[in-house]
Design a protein around this nucleic acid. Structure first.
Ligand code: FES
Ligand code: FES
Lengths: 151, 151
DNA sequence: AAATATACTACTAATTTAATAGGAATTAAA
DNA sequence: TTTAATTCCTATTAAATTAGTAGTATATTT
């Protein structure tokens, strides 16, 4: 499971992606309300994303946050990583939260390690080819599909 | 990440799988030492696996645990599930730990949900085709490979 | 009987994550 | 130049989860 922090980050960035073309920026409060995220919590998340160079901010009244890259270029795996979420199922196969398995004598000889590497690769493959733009596109498709059903 | 509990369970079952043919059973203490797992913790894990019908036990002196199914038929996904480990990256796409996303208005219209479903499917696909027997086989292959390298 | 196991339940400790608090700094507009 | 709106930053608290332990009952073999 990824932390809520990472999920909230994805939601917030999706929100910003939607206004990217108009070069608008959104305030924390706006995003928090839109996406049902606790405002103060979101504040720390956006700060983290800004320090990680994923978003930009403008201070003062009428300030806010905005994407610094095109929604096509921001992929889910980097958002999860930037917010400290592990993708792998075991620490010994995690790129960013690597920890040795004290109970396994040799990582290179461990069958479980080997399988979990494959799982990680499969997950990362999907998460790093899916961008914010893709996410929005998917939602449009899902909406069309559900409208067709209703008929 | 899956809990340590699940990792320990896989290790312990792999241990039991290795003696399956000889119809032997192993004591908790033996497995704990072999696999570097805290004995008392392993006790609770094996109990859970027994209550879940994955292993059998024999009480009393010379007692111990043994597999009730062939190592070919016990797959990683069921071990992880039996020990309460989530495989999905979000509760809203978890089969066994499902929880609604309070912040997303409609699950069917959520792009993130959609992507995370794919990730879950990919992970489960690997984990449910890998059995204890496969794990042991993999380790044999890894050993051969590392021996060749050393030459 | 003694020794060696599992069965069971409850508890404690440790860690992590989620969320909040509160004020400083910045900017735009009244 | 004051006021209102906003980000910036750090510390703290609260909540939840997980890891691990303790202790005793029960069963089986020798
Ligand atoms: S090395 Fe990590 S599971 Fe064995
Ligand atoms: S419904 Fe779970 S992420 Fe949107």
């Amino acid at each position: 499971m990824i932390p809520k922090r990472s999920k909230y980050a994805i939601q917030a960035l999706k929100c910003l992606a939607k206004v990217y073309r108009e070069k608008k920026h959104l305030s924390i409060a706006t995003i928090a309300e839109e996406e049902n995220i606790p405002r103060k919590f979101l504040e720390t998340i956006l700060l983290q994303l800004r320090n990680g160079g994923m978003v930009g901010s403008k201070m003062g009244a009428t300030g806010g946050y905005f994407l610094v890259k095109h929604p096509d270029e921001i992929v889910l795996s980097s958002i999860i990583r930037a917010t400290g979420g592990p993708i792998a199922l075991l620490p010994c196969v995690s790129l960013n939260f690597y920890e040795e398995c004290t109970e396994c004598p040799h990582e290179e000889l461990c069958g479980l390690h080997d399988v979990m590497l494959e799982v990680r690769e499969a997950s990362i493959h999907i998460l790093s080819k899916t961008s914010l733009a893709d996410l929005i596109l998917r939602e449009k498709k899902l909406l069309r599909k559900s409208e067709n059903k209703r008929k």
